[in-house]
Design a protein around this nucleic acid. Structure first.
Lengths: 315, 315
DNA sequence: ATGTTCGATTAAATAGAGCTTAACTGAACC
DNA sequence: GGTTCAGTTAAGCTCTATTTAATCGAACAT
């Protein structure tokens, strides 16, 4: 193996200098004096045999060689940092980073979080609400809660509960619309965040499940499920609510599900973490707590007729 | 920015140890004593707060943390090495690494290489014959010669010559088959390496170009163009030869192209290098030499009727 | 068994890489 | 025309990284 790497500290100095395009700021980032940094760069240039920076009056710019070297070095150090952080997180059982979509965060996690904090005061919970699928290492995430199905290679994936949708509304609203048939004239709320499901789980599908041929088009539309539920809570209409998002409101009487027919879907909320991480104590504790919380509300399914969405899929 | 990277030398030691799964061999690779390496690993484990290796009787194995850290670190150091080498190559004008397909290597480069070596004794030419598209940085290649067209973002691409195909054969063979029509009964040789071209440039297309409806199927087949030409040179038959591959044999009388009709194609041999590299002196010298060599044989096209392959494409 | 060998560890001593302080340069800004 | 800013240079110091040499423990050969 021919020419070996130059001193690594020099490469790190170059990385910082190239990112900041300034020796002073790079020195600052690395907590050294500009003199030290200047020295490192010079040493690197000697190892290479040609300059990496062109020294201008009051600034520096990369030479051809510098431009060749910088991207790879930057990338390499980023990877080192990422791996190192991921490894440190392994035995850090004091903080737990969880990401979930905004709806699950607002309607499921937020109302229950303080209970987890009480049960596990030793765990610092950090919550990142985002729909974007994240990289566990890059984004320093321990656990993700995502709605979906399908295989996730390399991940530990635990379905949290059997999921279904049923019309939910305030009790007053339920008095005004006592039967499914009466919903034809009701103010329906549309939750566009479920559009991606196949077979579809929309109002038309639910009406087919109760034997009604009706494909409503008009009403309030929300791109986030929690906003749709909030609108229903405010008495603004009737929404096809996902179990996980409405179970607490049903339990506590703020919402009711009067018709006894729910659409089931293959997608569920799932607990995801890197394979193997599920045995780390704080992650296991969080998972067990979620499962226990879900167990508490298992009874809401009682008395419901469950119709699989695929049975009422459009031809 | 929280926890910073540990000492980089320790990470490099870990990288080597994890790759070799042996402190002794890792120490050997880094040209240090096993003691030094042991020390580095220990220091890294202290920084991390937990062991990276499980020390067995006479071997080591990675712990969970070690397995988490190793792939990223390995990858990062590989990138560093790659970038560093690529940058070093920038001002190394003593060696030039060229890759080309086996046919171009055998039929174009090999017979001319010694002339280049004479003209540029200061340049050490390294030749890699392979059809596989290579990564300039990863494989430490300066120049690639490839047959094709289409855009190559980020690359400097220079078409080397207008390319065409015409039946070529030994002079004796030409006497036995004086006209295109007589080729119906001739021993045709098939060069399967051109199958990917669209529009096709096969025997059927050439026959259409001379107004003959004939789609031969049987004959010698070669997956590499140089073997097909070799077979023709040996008097084994008649092959549709690409200009670049047969021009030298035509020039020197070993082959003849008696029918005066050639099929042109949009694909040509191209000179490829990373954008910007074309100004480096030894690369420019090589490019200029290739262009000059091609210029020497420009006259072979004289007197040929060129028929674009797309004009005789099957409906 | 038992001695040998191999791979890792430890301790003490040492070389030198990498850092800091401090003084200097040169262009740009006011 | 002085001030400031960014980088450079030189001297000296600190502590990291390394070596040498001795130690340990298990495995292998005899």
């Amino acid at each position: 193996m021919p020419d070996r790497l130059p001193p690594l500290t020099a490469l790190r100095a170059f990385d910082a200098a190239a990112r900041h395009m300034s020796f002073a700021r790079a020195a600052d980032e690395l907590n050294v004096t500009p003199a030290a940094l200047s020295f490192q760069i010079k040493s690197l240039e000697e190892h290479l045999g040609q300059p990496l920076f062109r020294r201008l009056n009051r600034a520096v710019e990369l030479t051809e060689a510098g431009r060749t070297l910088a991207p790879g070095v930057e990338d390499a150090f980023q990877r080192l940092t990422r791996s190192w952080r991921a490894t440190r997180r392994l035995h850090d059982t004091t903080t737990l980073s969880v990401t979930a979509g905004p709806a699950f965060t607002a309607k499921w996690m937020a109302p229950r979080l303080y209970e987890f904090a009480q049960a596990h005061p030793e765990i610092d919970l950090r919550f990142i609400a985002s729909l974007r699928m994240m990289d566990f290492d890059r984004d320093e995430i321990d656990v993700a809660i995502r709605f979906g199905h399908g295989p996730d290679p390399g991940l530990y994936a635990l379905p949290l509960a059997f999921e279904w949708l049923t019309p939910v509304m305030t009790p007053e609203m339920a008095r005004r619309f006592p039967t499914p048939e009466s919903l034809r004239k009701a103010p329906l709320i549309f939750d566009d965040s479920l559009d991606f499901l196949d077979p579809p789980c929309d109002w038309a599908a639910w009406f087919r499940a109760v034997g009604i041929d009706h494909a409503p088009e008009h009403g309030l539309r929300f791109s986030q499920a929690d906003h749709a539920v909030d609108a229903a809570l405010a008495g603004g209409g009737i929404v096809l609510g996902r179990r996980a998002l409405v179970v607490k409101d049903l339990h506590e009487g703020r919402l009711v599900a009067p018709y006894g027919v729910a659409l089931s879907t293959k997608a569920h909320f799932r607990f995801l973490c890197p394979r193997g991480a599920e045995t780390r104590p704080h992650i296991a504790a969080f998972r067990d707590w979620i499962l226990a919380e879900i167990g508490k509300t298992a009874s809401v399914t009682e008395g419901l007729t469950i119709v699989p969405a695929e049975d009422v899929a459009p031809k």
